[in-house]
Design a binder for these strands. Structure first.
Lengths: 210, 210
DNA sequence: TTAAAATATCACCATTGGGTGATGAGTAAA
DNA sequence: TTTACTCATCACCCAATGGTGATATTTTAA
């Protein structure tokens, strides 16, 4: 008597592909991009690694597909912002920086991708960077450039520093759980101080640059 | 007739250890910390990997010893700065930021170590971070804290953002060779704009914070 | 000159990681 | 029930990597 093989076959190809994508996200969040090995991804997905080759062509393509599926810059909804530019966008600028801060502070996957961008050259990472630049260009072009005129580039340089600061500060303190310049970003007070400093610098920029 | 073994044996233990340390530095600079494997380090040093185990105990200890040998914060000579604090250290602050900018921009090994600090937890990396904090604390304590009084923490938060910005901006543009907020740090113009922005922000901070 | 210690190499093993061919097991149409 | 197709696993190969024991060579000192 042949024993009934109790292997329910509910998984379709799409479900499996999705499982791999989620496994990539999970490993990325918990261990970073360096830990994205075929064997581990397959184990995390609970499927055979052969399927990665069958469905995606290889790990590289799977990672590319994962990265393309992550569309951070449209998630950061800046749509409602444009249209009501008062004061040359001073409040909008503060809001954008605060949004960036919240986003990077709360999205582990985003932090790991920022780190990935600093560690490796890869077309799909490059594409994310280009999308980011394009989103920023939209804001600069539409809001700050007209306001600051010939000082527009100086404003961009300042924003470059502030956004970079937000990124690095979050990466650094989340990994090391330690102070930076005596500020502990892992405490509400430290976080608050950074937010205030950002607002202060934006204010002074709008007051002093033009 | 036994052929004369033309293997000059001029290498002593210390020379070999030094060769391994230099190999670590070389690989770190060219390929980053992820590429620091025993076999590769030994090949770069032109010696047997067994010696790494004999002399250091293993790759981990070798890396630790390398990191301990790198003393960046004393290389950044801030000694002559302290003592002549005018304007609450406004010019000194500008100078320190400019020095940091130069240093990270020109020292590939330092860039890679910054990245390493963001990627991995390791006691010897932690020690570097603590040294950095201690050096910074010295400057804050001696110069800005007395001047800004109860606003001292706000000043520190601003400095945290600016230094973080310097770090990330350099890491990002050197790896990706691309723009950030429309600024191309790989051109003299872009670099100049960032330097000016830093000075502007320091000036506005000293003017507006107190 | 010879014995011991230091220096260095080599061959080898175990583990991990990337990648593939053979095959099984369900499903659906002929 | 055959046939063919899709989804999935397994066993296996090969390269890279970490790590070690046996051994050879040079230096040093008795």
């Amino acid at each position: 008597m042949p024993e009934k093989t109790t292997k329910p076959r509910e998984k379709s190809k799409e479900k499996s592909k999705q499982a791999f994508m989620e496994a990539v996200g999970e490993i990325l969040k918990t261990k970073g991009h360096e830990a994205l090995k075929v064997n581990d991804i397959a184990a995390m997905a609970g499927l055979s690694k052969k399927l990665i080759y069958n469905y995606f062509g290889g790990t590289e393509q799977l990672l590319d597909e994962y990265l393309h599926s992550q569309d951070f810059w449209t998630k950061l909804n800046h749509e409602e912002l444009i249209g009501e530019t008062t004061n040359g966008g001073r409040e909008i600028t503060k809001q954008v920086l605060a949004d960036q801060f919240d986003f990077v502070a709360n999205h582990m996957a985003f932090q790991k991708i920022l780190l990935w961008q600093l560690s490796e050259e890869r077309p799909s990472l490059r594409k994310m960077i280009e999308d980011q630049e394009a989103t920023g260009e939209l804001l600069f072009n539409g809001i700050s450039d007209p306001y600051f005129g010939e000082k527009a580039t100086d404003f961009r340089a300042i924003m470059a520093i502030l956004i970079s600061g937000i990124y690095y500060l979050n990466l650094f303190t989340k990994v090391n759980g330690s102070m930076f310049c005596g500020i502990d970003l892992n405490t509400p007070e430290g976080e608050s101080k950074i937010r205030e400093a950002l607002n202060f610098l934006v204010d002074k920029t709008y007051e002093g640059l033009k």
